[in-house]
Simulated scan of single mutants.
Amino acid sequence: MSEGGAVRATEGRAAAVPGVSPVPTAAVDGASEGNRARVLRAWAELLRLPALFTVPGDALAGAAALTARPDRRTLFAVGSSLCLYEAGMVLNDWADRADDAAERPHRPLPSGRVRPAAAFTAACAFTAAGLALAGRGGRPALTVAAPLAATVWSYDLFLKHTPAGPFAMAAARGLDLLLGAAATAGRARPALPSAALLATHTLAVTTLSRQETRQGTPTAALAALATTGALSWLVQRRPSPGLSPHRRSPDGPLHGHRGQPGRGSTHRSPAPLTAALAVAYAITTARPYLHASLNPSPALTQQAVGAGIRATIPLQAALIARSGATATTTATATTTATATATATALLTAALAPVARIFAKRVSIT
């Protein structure tokens, strides 16, 4: 008898036994699909997928800080950033699984939907992939990615619950921006001011997140609100076109400030796009921060932290936009740099509504 005939005969005998009915194939397939959906949902929560949309802007802002056009190496930097970010997300929950069992039992690890061994393995794999992608972006990129990965692991395993925790998280976000600069242009120092602004925002949000699971004080939310106001102003202060005598253009030669040889760059009024993005950044966080300061309950604090994470996107876009008219040597180069920065800033800003939609399905914190 063939294999198919034996199966049909067995099904027929099962159907003939009183009180026993064969399980419909559709029901089995439905249960299998349901299990797969639950597994995917658990991993989406563990990876905090909506937060991923806050990552690409780091590398793009780093490239823009050197007025460099994003290229293939920038994409490697973005891929590296995404992997290292997810390594941090998974490792964070793995390290906190005992605390989450008491404070957040619904999370994937304490609820048993994801095994701790699988989470730790994933964190290691994401880290290895992130470093490999950085290596494809060039030695300068790998030189930044290595301390970035070390910072991520140090934060999750050792520094998170210490006073140094928020500073480590801020350093990681700043290094992520420098990774984009190093991969795209082979150097990162000119991107330090942008990295400092982004790191300051991250410092405020991370400090606020420390009271997500308990009744806190208004101090952290008020500090985050003040930080947002200061950064909204600072991000609009962009250099006038031209280079200081100590800054190299992406093409290599040294240039002085255009029209003012030998002098450092000055500041001028922000472009409309930069101003609009700065306002969008402030609006994203102002109301949630204010509510959390008036009532620092866990629920309102979590909402404020989520808003702070999403606000990273318009801040990145503003940093990119303000770089469009920096240091170039000709009017044509200025126009090209401005157009590139504008397109990149708008593309980055477009990630914000997408992140908001996904955050309605999967928690961003």
Rank of each mutant, 00 (worst) to 15 (best):
R189E: 15
A183K: 07
R139A: 14
G174A: 07
P105A: 15
A102H: 13
A123F: 02
A123S: 15
R107W: 02
A168W: 02
A188I: 05
C124M: 11
D156K: 04
R113L: 07
T184K: 04
H106Q: 14
H161M: 05
P108L: 08
T143M: 10
H161R: 15
L142M: 11
T162W: 01
A164I: 01
A101I: 04
L142E: 13
L148A: 13
L175F: 05
A191Q: 12
W153I: 11
R115K: 11
T162R: 15
L175C: 10
A101D: 06
A119D: 03
L131F: 02
S111C: 04
G112D: 12
V144N: 02
A149G: 07
D100Q: 09
A188S: 15
F158L: 14
P147S: 12
T121Y: 00
A185D: 13
L159A: 15
R139K: 12
D156V: 06
Y155W: 07
L192H: 03
P163Q: 13
D176F: 00
M169L: 13
A132Q: 08
L159D: 01
W153N: 03
M169C: 12
R104N: 13
A134I: 08
W153A: 14
G186N: 12
A170G: 09
A146F: 11
F167V: 13
F126Q: 08
L159N: 02
L133T: 03
R136T: 07
T184Y: 03
T162N: 02
C124R: 05
A134M: 09
A183G: 09
V152K: 02
A118C: 00
V144A: 04
P105M: 10
C124T: 12
L157C: 11
F120L: 15
G165S: 09
F126Y: 15
R136F: 12
T127E: 09
A128C: 11
C124D: 05
H106S: 13
F158Y: 14
